[in-house]
Design a binder for these strands. Structure first.
Lengths: 222, 222
DNA sequence: CAATTTCTAAGACAAGTGCTTTAGCAAGTC
DNA sequence: GACTTGCTAAAGCACTTGTCTTAGAAATTG
């Protein structure tokens, strides 16, 4: 077996075990064994440490997700973003669909979604990967495009809706990915687009406006 | 030092370390040491295993959260639930505020919120605690009260909005809890109520309706 | 007071951890 | 052919893990 094959086997095993037991769950030995390696330290040889394995897994899937999302953003910009709710739904779709497509990608797709959710949920623990995911070109571009659609109070602290929407998306996709092997995810994805749109477009209630105007901006909220 | 004090110290240390390193992060020894115990197995003596420590932590905070939420639901039912959006916002508030109040509870409140989020995000790993949290009387009652407010398509599979809203809430509270010590969380909580309301009340889009009617109900979606 | 229960201290145990080293194998390259 | 290179096998390192045992201190009870 060539080195390239071994590398791929290790990556797939790590993916599976990371999804099942958490990124910090399985030991390096365990992953090597699961990949069919009798060598206890094959993982160290090929990747070095846990963080690098994680980075390699994410990178593998980003190779598909990124172009997909960039393509959606391209057509969205060519058509000219229609203002109002409908334009926002298309932007939400550009966020959701490329990730949701991983549900059907039976080569580690669901596992990837669970891993991404863990990285998103604990950014300080997986800082390097979290930064990489956040700085992906498609995400930077998406954030810039969506901002004008949001109510002003929804952009700054104390609760950035862009980030809240992303966290929500990743969490729900992971939940779906855990409930194995559904044949068709289109209805689910459509619901998800509705909810992400709702989070982004949610009106700022009278109560919240009152809070904004009654209390000075909180300096501790950067 | 009495046994009761030691027990409390162990619980607080576990809370802190669970929040910082994940529930599976710290070793039993580590927790004992952090609680000032020279005994390496003080935790085992008082609680038995990790799951029981987790259960004790959650129970400690539920003692405050449960009555708070039940009280809100009581006044809400006495006033008679006004139909439409405003009644829904009050229901969302009854879900959000008792948990959000933990942000200010500087006796493990923020830590508790991070722990709850992890339990919610990985229900199969922490099945016992997840079941306990889900079966709490206030939550059972809340679910029953909120259901009539939801669009029919939002109640069943493939995406229960009640559960999605709860997951969202727990995740955002954990994120807020991680960004230490803000003096005032009322504006944040109000934003959060807006977003939970938006998730629950989100219109089912034309695209989603088309998916519902064009494809037969998916038998794999229980 | 004595007896009993409750709790902490201290240590030992096998098993498992990340990581390193050494050896061997199978290709390519000169 | 000799030799470097890429990779796997196997074992060993110091250390940590959960669990168990034993002993002694402290509080509670008779």
């Amino acid at each position: 077996m060539s080195g390239e094959d071994t590398r791929r086997d290790l990556l797939l095993a790590a993916e599976r075990l990371f999804a099942a037991g958490g990124i910090d769950g399985p030991s390096m030995r365990e992953i090597s064994k699961a990949a069919g390696q009798l060598n206890t330290s094959a993982l160290q040889y090929h990747f070095g440490d846990r963080q690098s394995v994680l980075a390699a897994i994410i990178d593998r899937h980003h190779r598909d997700v990124e172009p997909h999302r960039l393509g959606l953003l391209d057509t969205l910009e060519l058509d000219g973003e229609p203002p109002g709710e409908s334009g926002l739904r298309e932007l939400a779709a550009a966020l959701v669909l490329p990730q949701a497509a991983r549900l059907d990608h039976h080569d580690g797709g669901p596992e990837y979604l669970q891993i991404i959710a863990e990285v998103t949920a604990r950014p300080e623990r997986f800082a390097a990967s979290f930064a990489a995911v956040s700085a992906a070109p498609s995400m930077v571009r998406w954030r810039a495009l969506v901002t004008p659609f949001l109510p002003p109070a929804a952009v700054g602290p104390p609760l950035h809706r862009r980030f809240a929407a992303i966290r929500f998306l990743n969490g729900e996709l992971a939940t779906r990915a855990r409930e194995h092997h559904r044949p068709d995810h289109r209805l689910f994805a459509s619901h998800l687009v509705d909810l992400v749109t709702a989070i982004l477009a949610a009106p700022v209630s009278a109560q919240t406006s009152r809070h904004i105007h009654s209390s000075p901006p909180n300096p501790a909220d950067r």
